[in-house]
Each structure stands twice: as structure tokens, then as C-alpha cells.
Design a protein around this nucleic acid. Structure first.
Lengths: 218, 218
DNA sequence: GGGCGAGGGAGTGTATACGAGAATGGTGGC
DNA sequence: GCCACCATTCTCGTATACACTCCCTCGCCC
């Protein structure tokens, strides 16, 4: 292979890498992921990549169509809401167990993450927030001591980080498109249309903002 | 390959088959699953089997140790309780959406499943109950209209069916072991030990029974 | 000119082959 | 007689190779 810095277990790392890229928006929703491209990107053969893609399919990040390919799933608003609601229900259950089983070391890590999260929000480094968010939930999952809950919370927090990230980038994309439309309406001298577009624009930004800040750290 | 009745997609079927065998207890908790054996069992190569095992690992049915093998996971009582509690929390959320989105056809399927479940319980065909249970929850998940909730509920119901099935078989196994110990205590004339063992035996049987009948259909 | 069918290219699905690591059994030493 | 060390073997991990399917394009016929 290329770099050959891979020590012993490639597919697990591939899962992590691809999932990270999906969450970070490198692979946009609806994008097609070819095995060859991923194999080349990570410097391994197609076999580990295939296994990684199967895992990501089971986790719900991608969708595979036989003999066609795998595509990054597109989350609807409703599903994003479901994920957030799911977390709001499961997190207390997990926290209850964590309260009984947590170690002082885990407690310290959580406190550190909270501080880092607040700092990131205060300093406007919003791109770091989703990752800190995930870390926070993963530590809680680890502290719960339940492997079942841990696995579920980990997947949930990762998907929610994805929702946040997609929301941010999609928001930015939509923002620019709306700006363009507003400019067009202004250029055309269409006051009513421009007014309506600006109203929608503000409403959408507010909605996105509320979703984003409702629970900025964890 | 052997039978070669496989139409087009092998690994997906392999996931289903292996998971079914795990749930049915063909592969007991802690058992080692070798890729070659599974490949031979299903008449395919190791590649689809590996992908299937990765999926099952992501779903939490098996645990893989690098260069050693995959083992069927052993669920503790606490984790079983967590699964049941998880379902009791998630199911209402899913049902709320299903109440809004269900089709009459789905409603009919649910009613039929309930009838089948009651019949099975009344007639003492308990081995059919877990499967009917899973089906019931899967239809609810389908009716919710949320892909995210659907996937989660499906995995949950399958794992709970596993818990029930394992509980039944393990219970039978433990029962026989306890019987043996009780017999040994009786043969040795150890009244206190025999009394204690019988007490534990009844207690365990009661607990298992309560877990089993608390929610026999859905 | 438009619709339809065949052919080529791209990419997935699967099998086979080979290398790496770990569990196991035998052997030698203490 | 027991323990440690080493070789064997079994299995996993990965790469390579080939077959099958889908899609797109080009050519033909209506």
C-alpha cells in the first residue's frame, strides 16, 4: 500500500475516518461514495473500505443500493428533531447510571469538556462545538457502565453532531442562495418580493439559531 | 459455491441468517464464530461473512477481537434491564408518530399480530412469542414514518427478542445445573445447603418468569 | 428527427491467495 | 515434576483478480 503507517487494524480506522468526513461535511448528503476513491484516499484495499461502509450503513450514515453504490443519507428536518428528542429522553437514563458508576477521573474529563465548550461558544469557535458535544456525551456513555447504553449514546451523539454540522453548512449554503434571491428582487425593484424573502430569511436563520443554541454544549 | 440459490445479495442475507441463529440460540453467548465455519454454513466466501460480522458487531450482537475472532456477546442482567427500559421509553415516542402516520393496512397487521400473540401465549407456544414480539415492534417502527426511529426500534426489538430467548434457554440450562446442585446437596445430607439452593432456585425462576410475563406480547 | 436496442465503460459483488498475529502443544531446562 | 521457551498451526487481515450488474452512449431503424 501507500503510506503503510497502518499498524494492524485498518477497517476500524476507516469507519472512523469516513464517518468523521461525513460529519465534517467533506462528503455532503446525497453524495456518492465509491469504494475505489475511499480506498485510495485511505491508502488501503477495497476490502476494509467495504466493511467500513457496511458498518456506516448499519449506523445509518449511508445507504447502499445493490450494484449501484453507497450514498450519504439525507436527514430530513423531522428526523433531526427525532434525533434530538431521542437524546433528550435517553440522556437522563444514561446520566442516572453514570451518576452511580462514574469515576472521579471521568468527572474531571466532563468538567474539562464543559469548560472547553463554554470557551468555544464565547469565543465564537462554533466549528469546534459539535465535536466537544460528542465527546461530552461519549464520556457520559462510558461512565454509565452499560455497554448497551454506551453504544447507543455514542451513535446518537455522532449523528446529532452530524445534524448540527449539516445544519451549519446547509444554513450557510441556503443563506447565500437567499442573499442572491434577495439581491435579484432588489435589482428588479420588486419591493414586495424582497420584503417577503428577507422575512423568510430571518425566520429561517432564527430557527436554525434556536436549534443550534438550544443545547450548545451538551 | 454449494447450493447457489443465492440470487444477488449474499451479505445482507448472511446478516439476517447469523442474527437469527444468535437470537434462536444456535450460537450461544460467548461462543466463538469462525469465518470459515459461517462461510461453509451459508455456502459463500469469507468476504460476505466478514461484512456480515462487522454489521452484527456494530449492532452489538457480537464482539470482535483482532486476530482472534468474533464472539457472541454475553448480556448481563443489567443490560437486559437497560434494553427493556430503553424500549419502554422509546416505544411511546415511536407510537405517537405511528398514531399520526399509520395506514389502515398497518393497523390491520398490528391487530393480527396481537391476536397471534395472545393465541400463542394462551396455547403455551412460548417459543413463537419473541418473534411475534419483534414483528409487532417492527411494524410500529415502520408506521412511525421516521427512518431514524425505525432503524433504532428494529435493532432494539431484535435485541430484546434475543434477551427473551436467551433468558428462556439460559434459564433452562441454569435450572438443570441448579437441580444437579440440589441433588448433590440432598445426596450429601446437607439440609442447610439444600434449603438455600432451593430458595435461590425459586427466586431465580420467579424473576425470570416475571421478566417474561411482564410484557408477553408487546 | 425521434425512439429503441445493443455495446462499452464504470463500479460493485465475490472468490481466491498470501501474509501476520495469536493460541497451543511439545521440548528442554531447572 | 513443574515451568519457561519455542515451533507449529489455526485463524484473522488484506491484497489481488475476476464475474456480474447497471448506466450511458452511440448507432440503427422506424
Amino acid at each position: 500500500m501507500a503510506g503503510d503507517k497502518g499498524p494492524r487494524r485498518a477497517p476500524q480506522e476507516a469507519v472512523r475516518a469516513v464517518r468523521e468526513d461525513i460529519i465534517r461535511g467533506v462528503f455532503a448528503p446525497g453524495a456518492r461514495l465509491t469504494e475505489d476513491a475511499l480506498a485510495a484516499r485511505y491508502g488501503v484495499s477495497r476490502v476494509p473500505v467495504r466493511e467500513a461502509l457496511r458498518v456506516l450503513e448499519a449506523e445509518g450514515f449511508v445507504e447502499a443500493k445493490p450494484y449501484v453504490g453507497v450514498f450519504v443519507r439525507e436527514l430530513s428536518e423531522a428526523e433531526a428533531e427525532d434525533l434530538l428528542e431521542l437524546r433528550s429522553v435517553i440522556e437522563p437514563m444514561c446520566a442516572a447510571r453514570a451518576a452511580r458508576n462514574r469515576t472521579p477521573e471521568q468527572l474531571g474529563r466532563l468538567k474539562e469538556l464543559v469548560n472547553l465548550g463554554w470557551d468555544a461558544v464565547r469565543d465564537g469557535r462554533l466549528e469546534e462545538v459539535p465535536r466537544l458535544n460528542s465527546r461530552f456525551h461519549e464520556v457520559i456513555a462510558e461512565a454509565s457502565g452499560s455497554e448497551v447504553l454506551g453504544q447507543l449514546i455514542r451513535q446518537l451523539s455522532q449523528k446529532i453532531a452530524w445534524v448540527y454540522a449539516v445544519g451549519l453548512t446547509l444554513r450557510a449554503e441556503d443563506s447565500w442562495r437567499e442573499h442572491e434571491e434577495i439581491l435579484a428582487a432588489l435589482a428588479a425593484g420588486d419591493a414586495d418580493r424582497a420584503s417577503g424573502l428577507v422575512g423568510q430569511h430571518i425566520l429561517r436563520a432564527t430557527t436554525a439559531y434556536r436549534r443550534r443554541v438550544r443545547d450548545p454544549i451538551g
